[in-house]
């Protein structure tokens, strides 16, 4: 019990809650302070998450360190803005205001989230599916491999960000453009890695399958694919981050809705509290997606190379 109550993060937590409940020193008619309720709510969620993680970890050192750092940063932010009014409000909004954005604009944020996720998931899964499928087919056929690999290598070196604006102009709708951008952003590298992995696969695995007289389709999809699966899953989080990056870049250019668009529009109108809230939201979504990948990995991959 002592482990969960008496520690530095909890002390900071109490200080933070108390401090944010006190009246702010800042009194600016043009930029009124939002209620502290959302900020306090966020801190409580962080605390619950912290206690949960503390319970799950063995010695909890890292969990405590991370919580301490988080609380210390929030405390500093709170002090410098709403309590001591040192930083210019217009550029660095108070945490109360930033977190209140989630209360005020939840509908906009949610619909942007939905929109971005649809684009992200379609582009990401299509690229992954075709990249792996073609990679296995090409990688398995020496002639195709020798012809295709150098070409794919060239394509995969061009970052999708560079032709994103062009595609947004070229495609009829923003949706198709951003799905295509996400697709191209990871398709070439997935294809290249898969061709490479198939080419360098452990010869003993292939021989074991050969001597069992497997047909080609069994070799490709019941031997090579499961053999590569751990590697594919390991590459997912990098690929996901690249896709979110390309999507956000596309949203800066042509979207009318979406997570990245929310941030951009807020910056355009100098609503920095909304911009920061949008950035925090993207970080949370990305973290959640990465955790999903980790769970998938634990379920699907029960063996190591």
């Amino acid at each position: 019990m002592k482990k969960y109550v008496l520690n530095v993060p909890n002390l900071l937590f109490l200080a933070l809650v108390t401090l944010s409940s006190l009246a702010p020193s800042r009194l600016d008619a043009r930029n009124p302070m939002s209620p502290a309720s959302a900020f306090v709510g966020a801190i409580i969620i962080v605390e619950i998450f912290f206690l949960f993680k503390l319970k799950r970890s063995r010695n909890g050192m890292a969990v405590k360190d991370i919580a301490t750092f988080t609380y210390a940063s929030l405390l500093l932010w709170e002090l410098l803005t709403s309590k001591l009014d040192i930083l210019k409000y217009i550029f660095v909004p108070a945490p109360e205001n930033v977190f209140y954005v989630f209360v005020k604009f939840w509908l906009v944020i949610l619909s942007g989230f939905e929109r971005s996720m649809i684009l992200l998931v379609s582009g990401f899964s299509a690229a992954l599916f075709f990249g792996v499928l073609l990679g296995i087919l090409v990688g398995w056929t020496p002639r195709l491999r020798n012809a295709v690999f150098p070409v794919v290598k060239v394509f995969s070196t061009v970052p999708a960000l560079i032709y994103t604006p062009y595609l947004v102009v070229l495609m009829p709708t923003f949706g198709t453009a951003s799905v295509l951008v996400i697709f191209l952003g990871i398709f070439w590298s997935t294809l290249m890695n898969t061709i490479n992995d198939v080419g360098t696969i452990d010869k003993r695995i292939i021989d074991s399958a050969r001597i069992l007289n497997v047909k080609t389709n069994v070799m490709l999809f019941q031997v090579i694919f499961p053999y590569l699966l751990p590697r594919i899953i390991n590459s997912l989080s990098v690929q996901l981050n690249i896709s979110v990056m390309t999507l956000n870049a596309a949203e800066l250019i042509g979207a009318d809705r979406g997570m990245g668009y929310f941030v951009k529009r807020s910056i355009d109108y100098a609503n920095y509290d909304q911009a920061i809230a949008g950035i925090i939201f993207i970080a949370i979504v990305l973290t959640a997606l990465n955790s999903l990948i980790l769970i998938a990995k634990r379920r699907l991959v029960k063996w190591q190379y």
């Binding site: 003993r204 021989d207 074991s208 001597i211 069992l212 007289n213 031997v223 499961p226 699966l229 063996w303």
Partner: peptide, 18 residues
């Protein structure tokens, strides 16, 4: 080539790890 009338046990462990 390989054939169904023949079976092989390799020196190295040759099971599919998954």
């Amino acid at each position: 080539g390989t054939g169904p009338e023949r079976s092989v046990v390799f020196q190295h462990y040759s099971l599919f790890p998954w």
